[in-house]
Amino acid sequence: MESSLKFFNAKTASFGRHETFSLRYAWLTKGFQAFNHNHTVFSSDESTIELGVGKNMVNAIKYWLRATAILKDSGEGLVVSPPLGKAIFSEKDGWDPYLEDEATIWLIHWLLVTNSELATAWYWFFNCFHKPEFTSEEAAEALAGFVRNNVSGKHSEKTVKQEVAMILRMYSPPKLNAKSGIEEGLDAPLSSLKLVTATENSHFYRSLPGSQPNLPTSVMSYAINEVFNQRRIDMLPINDLMYGQNHGIAIGNVFRLTESALLAKLENLVTAYSENFQINETAGIHQLSRTGKNMTSSDFLRDYYQSAT
């Protein structure tokens, strides 16, 4: 089956395309529904009126819709990415068009940080950066080093380093003050996952693995099935799922899971979908295999949202 995931490509990395605006709660819903009514909304002279924001914000909304794989470029223009765009954000029967369920935030996180082409810095931070405590400057220099060593073409080092500040702003629970403002502080959906936190003196940040009890099994199932589809295989070592290899997607790192937490999640997955997944041991290596009943990745999500209603 086809996967929405792409392998890391040194030639297609990109940085700084969000117009310095971080993702906000209402933007995916507003942007998707406006696009669904008018497929030329982002190129229209009336875009600022239709979306009710300034021109730079119009571009930012378009970017975040593409970075989270809700919309994609077909080569002939933007189209809704099947099947998740409509399934989540449809005004009539969308699973969670207003992001009221934390499972949807986890899903958006997954879609964003596995987009190595349009959200390269996010992909790097959650798949390749393994330092549990760091300063913004240390992370920025690490990203710049990754780009110098692994990315083709010319990219402004200043722009590359600024991506880290954007990631920290989006993921660390905000400290409200006069400069940041209440609106921006409360309008950061990915911060609710607490995958990044600032230390008390605000100089250091932490992004530590944990048990992630609020991460639904169905979202994990979706993610793992997508990795299987991407690699066109039906068996993966659990260590590979934890850490990835050769700049590949690392499930454990993406969701900031400890090794024991990942194994517990996989055991829950096997219990819930015993016809689809099994854990076995081959030559002393624990592996997750996909077998039996054929389900698409979105089927796992449908199970979750239908049971939640």
Rank of each mutant, 00 (worst) to 15 (best):
E200Y: 06
V254Q: 11
A26E: 14
G284F: 08
N127T: 07
M295K: 15
R232S: 14
A67C: 08
P97S: 12
L84G: 08
C128G: 12
Y222N: 10
L99T: 05
P216K: 01
T20N: 13
T217F: 06
H109V: 07
P213I: 01
A67T: 09
N294W: 08
F35E: 12
E200K: 05
W122C: 05
E137L: 00
S192Y: 10
G244M: 02
A34M: 04
N149Q: 14
L241F: 09
S274V: 04
V254W: 03
W124P: 12
W64R: 00
I108V: 14
E259P: 07
L168P: 12
P174C: 14
S14Q: 15
W110F: 15
L208I: 05
I70G: 13
P173V: 03
E267F: 03
M242C: 01
L107K: 01
N225Q: 12
F126T: 02
W95E: 07
Q245M: 11
M1T: 12
H155P: 13
S260E: 14
F300L: 01
D187H: 00
E19G: 06
S90Q: 13
N253Y: 10
W122H: 15
S307F: 06
A188D: 07
Y171G: 07
T135V: 06
E91A: 08
H18G: 13
A69V: 06
E102Y: 00
A87P: 00
K30N: 09
V160A: 09
Y123K: 00
G52L: 01
P213D: 12
M57W: 02
V79W: 06
K6M: 12
D96P: 09
I224Y: 05
L215C: 13
P213W: 06
E200I: 05
F125V: 00
N38M: 11
A119N: 10
E184A: 14
V113I: 13
